[in-house]
Nucleic acid binder design. Sequence first.
DNA 1: ATGAAGTATAAACCATGCTTTATACTTGTT
DNA 2: AACAAGTATAAAGCATGGTTTATACTTCAT
Lengths: 120, 120
Amino acid sequence: MLISELSKRTGVSIPTLRYYENYGLFKGVSDEKTKTNNYKDYDESIVEKIEMIKGAKEAGFTLSEIKKLIDSWFNKRLSKEKKITVVNSKINEIDNKICQLYKVKKLLSECIVDIEKGYC
Amino acid sequence: MLISELSKRTGVSIPTLRYYENYGLFKGVSDEKTKTNNYKDYDESIVEKIEMIKGAKEAGFTLSEIKKLIDSWFNKRLSKEKKITVVNSKINEIDNKICQLYKVKKLLSECIVDIEKGYC
DNA sequence: ATGAAGTATAAACCATGCTTTATACTTGTT
DNA sequence: AACAAGTATAAAGCATGGTTTATACTTCAT
């Protein structure tokens, strides 16, 4: 598919998609031999990749972190063990974030009690 | 306490503290009458406030969001009910973020299975 | 009383993650 | 054939959340 469809499918704006592609998060292919233009083609796997990027971003990861994750993920030279190590360390980070969020939630819940008591 | 101690107590750099103060997240007092300087004094409640800011930031809230929360929190003119509404809506946002993090975690766990099977 | 260290303020600078603008080529419709 | 709409690239612009720099005053130890 072309970039406009990719944008529709993922809900990510065209400039942002180009920014991501330029950043190295994914790569469309432009078939230089058979086509007169250099329009790029994006396949289904890229839709999935972008959904993953969106999720990771909402979870608070930076593009640089996401890129590292994707790079190790699709790097054929990396051993299974090393890939798993990278992904597991991200899972740990997510656990920490979840833990942090529960702490803030607790703080805010206490805050509500204080408000009800008229302390603030 | 003075700003350098506040920095030590909270682990937040002095320029960042000044940035936050300037942003309106808290306010030190400089006693114009009794002191020859204009050094500001920060009390214990400000340490707590900054811990809260740190937590909220790690949880992914922007300074602008945090400011709104603090403003409503300490705004005497706001009714109990309105304060509680503001804080509850933040709690909802936190729940959503937690949910999102679990989704990404699930994605990464599936990814590990794929790596083990040699799919990527 | 002098120099090092702490404080304050303002302004410039910087990285991240985009968005906007400008330019140029391609395609598709009429 | 011509014009709107889509694609590509590069560069500039922008908001957020700081850090760095420059300048000046205050305090503290000697």
